[in-house]
Design a protein around this nucleic acid. Structure first.
Lengths: 345, 345
DNA sequence: CCTTAGCACTCTACCATAAAGAGTGCTAAG
DNA sequence: CTTAGCACTCTTTATGGTAGAGTGCTAAGG
């Protein structure tokens, strides 16, 4: 399918892509001729560019304009022509300093720092899916009584996350009753992933427990609710205003649609989840994206892990005209750092 | 200072303001004449409008355009002419349903719901300062050991909030050592507001404790850090994309500046805090605002309370051309509901 | 003395037309 | 196969002209 281009065509395609990424203006044959190392005339370049257009790698916005890369052109560039940049010291420093292990104990803090770093280093919008808590396994459950009416449920997973939530008891509970419930639950739930704690399992446990302690109904409902809530995964955003600097978003209507998208967390989650099975960095250009709202954008995603267990996904979203080399370099570096920070805590 | 206008001038000013709020177009004398109950000719209205302009209540964008209200005009309108609307059933229902007490136990949840309701009901951007945790008083501190290396610090305030945070112990602690520390801290801190827990007080406690338990240094540093973090107050935003629907923000550059502002949480906090001492609803029109970035906007704020103790501030931010009556009505209603929901839990 | 009809005047918004500039495709010659 | 030359196309920018909205002023009427 992907026809291989001869070297001259490749060089010309690369020149067009690089130039267009930099200037956001259609690239003409004269400009390419000036950049081209082989010293060809603009007329020759013109012929080659006409060929590249016919093959579908370039597009002309109108008859008397230069060429811009088509989606297929970007794809060929990413797959075959792109150079990965060295990271600037500046970016390097930002990544290692703001994600250094040890300083932060809360995963949310790490994730939020990452969104900021990722968006400023790439000048695009970054989105990071919070840890896939539901894939973690139950390790320990505690209930800390706060006063007669309330308790704090603390849940510890095998990946070392700690989640907690306040619940109201409807009835007063004695210390020993509480103790019984807690140890029963721990025994039953140990080792299951949060995903596996289905409603039917909870109902089963409930029936089982009620034989012993009828009083608990209310507390149980609340526990169930808290679990349900924890299954929901947050998506963190950074640099949403960066799209305003891109000339492809000079239209207020496009901006509106984009910002609207950013406000819909469940949709963002779906978009990121769609790519979460892949192992390395994934580049989705234009209509390669499943979701209608980002079919004019490029989304680059990667997964982050803790001890070889995939926890979530991070992504960079921007116009198809983006600095692929830079973004991919930054993401690769950031994911490494992130994996390291998470695993070492 | 504020000269009182005669009734006819008031009616004309009102007509201009109301019309301009609705249409966002300069209002001409003919339009006012049509709306005016007294049945005057456009020529008469013209004379009056010329007077109002000279007095500084109206402005003309250019010679052959209608008038629009000046900042002073809006101020006069808000102070003397504005009607408070009845809330539509729709809005009424949204407020009472999404903030009904009992359903939610976490204050953050309540606040986030409020931002959503406030922004959709007003079609503006809403911002709510999270509870001023630092004004609450220390009630109880607990440490729940999680494993050898970590513990969960739980802090309960007199207003019933529960904050918690995971800390790493550098050294292993026995149950009884922990118990000693906790009861000592509780004794010392009880009744103080979070604000009053200064660094010097912490240092004093530290010296005191170290005589007994040198081992604790690391844990203490972490506790101190957590407290510092809790003192920081979050600002929640809703409906940030609403400004895109307003014609005064059809300029991409203005949008950028505005959205940039929205990303700077500390600044938003300052803006809201600036008004937090006032008792009722406060309307700041245009340059009446202290902060440069919102001098072209109107900010309407109000405080919410729990048991007569001011916890935080909520605000609506939009162009000076906003539906003052509606926004103020909605805010008044929402604050009442919020106070009720918070106090009843 | 206040109100109002009438009218000249001003300014914006819109449209059409023209000119400049960029870049192409084609042809023919090296 | 490459390239100089040239006619052609299309966009962008500038220009001028017109319609429409609204004003301010003047003079007449109650």
């Amino acid at each position: 399918m992907t026809a291989v281009l001869n070297e001259r065509k490749e060089q010309i395609l690369r020149a067009v892509v690089v130039n267009y990424i930099k200037t956001a203006e259609p690239v003409g044959s004269r400009t390419v001729a000036r950049t081209h190392p082989g010293g060809l005339s603009s007329a020759t370049i013109r012929n080659e560019m006409a060929d590249l257009e016919e093959m579908g790698y370039l597009v002309q916005p109108h008859t008397s304009a230069g060429r811009i890369p088509s989606q297929r052109g970007y794809r060929y560039y990413v797959d075959n022509l792109m150079d990965l940049n060295e990271l600037s010291e500046d970016v390097e420093e930002k990544i290692s300093s703001s994600l250094s292990a040890g300083k932060m104990r809360e995963i949310e803090q790490i994730i939020m720092n990452s969104t900021r770093v990722l968006s400023t280093a790439t000048n695009q919008t970054s989105l990071i899916m919070g840890p896939q808590f539901k894939k973690s396994a139950f390790h320990q459950l505690r209930i800390l009584p706060l006063d007669e009416k309330r308790g704090l449920v603390v849940l510890i997973t095998d990946t070392g996350f700690i989640k907690n939530k306040v619940i109201d008891f409807q009835h007063q509970l004695s210390q020993s009753e509480l103790q019984q419930v807690v140890s029963y639950l721990n025994q039953k739930l140990y080792g299951l992933t949060i995903d596996q704690v289905t409603t039917s399992l909870i109902n089963e446990l409930k029936r089982d427990l009620f034989r012993r302690l009828e009083i608990l109904e209310q507390a149980f409902i609340l526990l169930e609710e808290s679990l349900k809530e924890e299954k929901q995964i947050r998506v963190f955003l950074g640099g949403t205003t960066n799209i305003l600097n891109q000339p492809e978003f000079k239209d207020v209507d496009k901006i509106r649609r984009m910002l609207n998208l950013f406000e819909q967390e469940p949709l963002l989650f779906k978009i990121l989840e769609d790519n979460s099975s892949e192992d390395d960095i994934v580049v989705r250009i234009g209509s390669e994206n499943e979701f209608e709202d980002i079919k004019e954008c490029t989304l680059i995603t990667a997964n982050y892990r803790i001890h070889d267990k995939t926890l979530g996904t991070l992504g960079v979203l921007g116009p198809t005209r983006m600095d692929y080399g830079k973004v991919i370099s930054v993401m690769r570096r950031l994911v490494n750092q992130l994996n390291q920070s998470l695993s070492s805590s």
